[in-house]
Design a protein around this nucleic acid. Sequence first.
RNA 1: GCCCGGAUGGCGGAAUUGGUAGACGCGCUGGUCUCAAACACCAGUGUCUUCACUGGCAUGCCGGUUCGACUCCGGCUCCGGGUACCA
Length: 944
Amino acid sequence: MEYNHKEVEQKWRQFWEENQTFKTEIDTSKPKYYVLDMFPYPSGAGLHVGHPLGYIASDIIARYKRLKGFNVLHPMGFDSFGLPAEQYAIQTGQHPAITTEENITTYIRQLKQIGFSYDWSREVRTSDSKYYKWTQWIFMQLFNHYYDKDANKALKITDLVEKFATSGNKSVNAVCDEDTPVFTSEEWNAMSEFDQQSMLLKYRLTYPDESVVNWCPGLGTVLANDEVKDGVSERGGFPVEQKKMKQWAMRITAYADRLIDGLNEVDWSDALKEQQRNWIGRSTGASVRFEVLTPNPQPLTPQNIEVFTTRVDTIYGVSFMVIAPEHEYVPFLTTPEQKEAVDEYVKWVASRSELDRMSEVKKVSGVFTGSYVVNPFNDEKVPIFLADYVLAGYGTGAVMGVPSGDQRDWNFATHFKLPIVPILDAQKDIEKEADNTKEGKYINSGIINGMEYKEATKTLTTYLEEKGIGKGKIQYRLRNAVFSRQRYWGEPVPVYFKDGLPYLIEESELPLDLPVIDKYLPTETGEPPLGRAEGWAYHPSHNGEGQGVRYPYELSTMPGWAGSSWYWYRYMDAQNEAEFASQDAINYWKAVDLYIGGSEHATGHLLYSRFWNKFLKDLGLVPEEEFAKKLINQGMIQGRSNFVYRVKSSVGAGKNPVFVSYNLKDQYETTDIHVDVNIVNNDILDVNAFKNWREDFANAEFILEDGKYVCGVEVEKMSKSKYNVVNPDILVDKVGADTLRLYEMFLGPLEQAKPWNTNGIDGSFRFIKKVWRLFYDDQSNFKVKDEAPTPAELKVLHTAIKKVEEDLERYSFNTVVSTLMICVNDLGSLKCSKKAILQELVILMSPYTPHIAEELWTLLGNEAGTISYASFPKFNPSYLVEANFEYPISINGKVRANISFPTDAVPADIEAGVLANEVVLKWLDGKAPKKVIVVPKRIVNVVM
RNA sequence: GCCCGGAUGGCGGAAUUGGUAGACGCGCUGGUCUCAAACACCAGUGUCUUCACUGGCAUGCCGGUUCGACUCCGGCUCCGGGUACCA
């Protein structure tokens, strides 16, 4: 009886569903383990073979941990708000909820087919109002809190109001807007409601903020930088303009230090942690104010320019200052003589894309403004330049130029013939290039002459603070996160406006449901789509205000990352209507033990989620500072395209198209045509399927090699238009889910990017069939025996048990597959069909190939469905003990012989045995060896 | 430019702490079975040399440390990913 994967897999999927095999409850008698996949956006295209890669790995761990006695939480859900459904709605008028529902149905069908052990009763969808009620609720908490630097946590805004009323804000050490004024309690108490509320917005963790955005009127939305190409939208090619807009922002910068420090306590890859550290970009330095000297001061001309530097010790080496060409001071610093040159330069810079500015770093460009600043330390006049390497958006948009210590400044100074002043006696060759050393003693440096780096920095910072011209400062690259989208298909913001100021609706009024609208486009006046919703206004019901009073709601919706920034808690208690999750559930499951997903989320999702998690912890709602203890980024699966080659002369009316095989194509003039990889096997084209594939190829003729049509190959992105998308449904049908799971893991290390190549899947399929043949002979007789296993059989089994366990513990999924293959091959060679051995083997396999494992488990006489909660086989080292070890004998590092010695032989005996060996004697050629190295149970090296 | 990763047979990859480079699988070659094919099974398969034995060469390139290097160190090349020139 051949193994029938279709029947068996179907049977067990149904069993799991009907018996709710993987339904999970809180169970304090077992240790818990939480395995989470980054949940998908359900796109219309369905799953391709790249998507399940991480899901298979996490499912294997989930199943493995169950066997190890853990109570495993392994859920799946959908990040179901997003642009594609809305784009589709704009085109067709179909409500995004309908499209989304359909797509989710497809995803669930495809996921279930691969045999994942998800607890589907915990499924969540971010676009479900039962879910986004809590996203809105968290937003409200953020609005109601501020960050207190002394407590180093978020505190209630009502506490802040109390402090303001009693002692003003001078003693308050809180994160707030840069322009927050200092006020006394009297001043606070005298403020109007409007002024007080405006002041509080400077402290709230979420607040409306003016920010410059890529506004695309054609699409009626704001675009990310990478959605803009050459000044037009990537999608549709509409013009994009820079526009200031009131947007909600999240004060993530309040958590900058904790976001950096927390990285030390999580087991994430160094590459990923480094990326987050760089993104947050904490740098310690000093801010220094330089007084402006301009020949033509105007009322708006700034008196000072402030710079931030991480090397304040180099301040005596400053020979120029650079401000960003976009800087608001530029018009006031430009002298009439320089105006023409400056205007021209500013215009030129504006015309250059970021890419241009980036790739041309070696070419120095800039222009003198005509004005100067004064170096506060040596009173020297320092010219102010504009240069495109300084960005207006970062820090103060101004940089001090120290050519002897910074290569970019050195290039600039050399180009404009500015002085290059040495400042440290250890600087070398500064006439040739900059030397950024911190070694040596300072020279040409006024009050720090003769000092070393540490002392100099301290001295200068103290001086700055005493004179009131600067201070020590920690600066971050991280900016507060914009939290608005001019879109329909997202969470409504639970805010209404009274006198232009935002107020929260009552918690009891949540969820604020997404209203029905007629069209999914911005309004004629440029308002977001919610502006179309009739009656989209707040009716106060709580404070006794007059009937019929209405306040307009916020019209923008939340961004895609809102719903995904806390979802792992919802899985813990997905149906709870009273809380986002019960404290019982949260304190049991605590945090994610293993999180698997793509590295493209490094600075988006993973940073925002950490931020929200820390905030929820400050509120005492969750116990852990970090939400994901261990994280693995799975590598991207690239597409592998196949090509056919159409002979150019065969194209035209009345002609049959002729295709030439890959290795003969150089003899013809051909056109490369992508061919559907699903009708190609091991790069050999199925010519009949090809004729049926496209109508215009129905009469195709072929020039074959060795009777076959060989296709060309290229690695590209997996995409529909390249016909290289491999759908898991087809493979599940052909070879089964178990084979697919096995093969995806067998491809290589999980973290590594690799092209999908269906060639080779046969090997995994053969493995499944080989396992089956350990149970059934050629005549379909069940051949499992109850005999006692031999030492050889036990050795094979326990070698596998050891390796499978070790490899799973280090997430080496691919090598486990080899181990299982070796084990099955060896048992086959031993003709082993003993129950005691096979029973353990089946458990070992079950995380990878759960369907066939279930079937074999019951064939061995076990109760159906119990394998998922069986015990992982216990490794017994005594079965692996060997009497002898075969030593490789190398001579000068090259292996020349193998000699067997007893395992417990002492090095001296081994050495004597080796030197008596004839192969060794031949190589020694009568000479005495210089040295013999014996590494017990490893190797012997004879040095001559 | 900067940051991070990577490079091993025809292909995917293995080698966990410096100790027999190429496990396992694909593909290919030959054989058994079959009318034939498919399936399955057996044998071989880095490369050069050789009838064979054997030997030389080989983990992107150059150099170093070591009895011994895919593994460690220094320098480079190429490929992939990220990116906000972050002072």
